[in-house]
Amino acid sequence: MSRQDIYIIIIVLAIAAAAWGFISLTADQPTSAVAIISVNGRQLDPISLNADQTLQVDGALGACTVEVKDGAIRMLEADCPDKICSKTGFISQSTQSIACVPNKIVITISNHTTDKEIDYILR
C-alpha cells in the first residue's frame, strides 16, 4: 500500500463520517407532523406536534383532555368507562392512532416524512 492509498482510505472514511454527521444533525429537526382529531366522524383542525399544550375536546360523553408533548400526543383524561384511549399512551408515527369509542373520538397522525420505522427492505 502506498501513501496515496492511505489518503484514499482517509478520504472515503471522512466522507462517510461527514454524511453520518449531516444525517444525525438533520434527523432531530422539529417534526412537521400534525395530529388530526375527529369527533363523531368530523375532523377538527390539525394540531401541530411541535408546541407542547393541553386542550379540551368535547366527545359524545363529555370533555376529554388531550396533551401534546415532545412531538407526541396522548389522551390525558377521558370521560369513558374503560380508559382504553388514555392507556394507549403517546403516539407520534402515522401508523399509530388513539381511539375512544364511547366518546367517538379518533386521533391520528399525518405526515410521511417523520416516520422512522422501516416500511420494507429492497434487495
Binding site: M1, S2, R3, Q4, D5, Y7, I8, I9, V12, I15
Partner: peptide, 16 residues
Amino acid sequence: LLRKASPIGISILGAA
C-alpha cells in the same frame, strides 16, 4: 491521475 496509488486504493475508489 493518481500515479502513485496501488490497485488497492484504486479498487477502494471503485467500490465507493
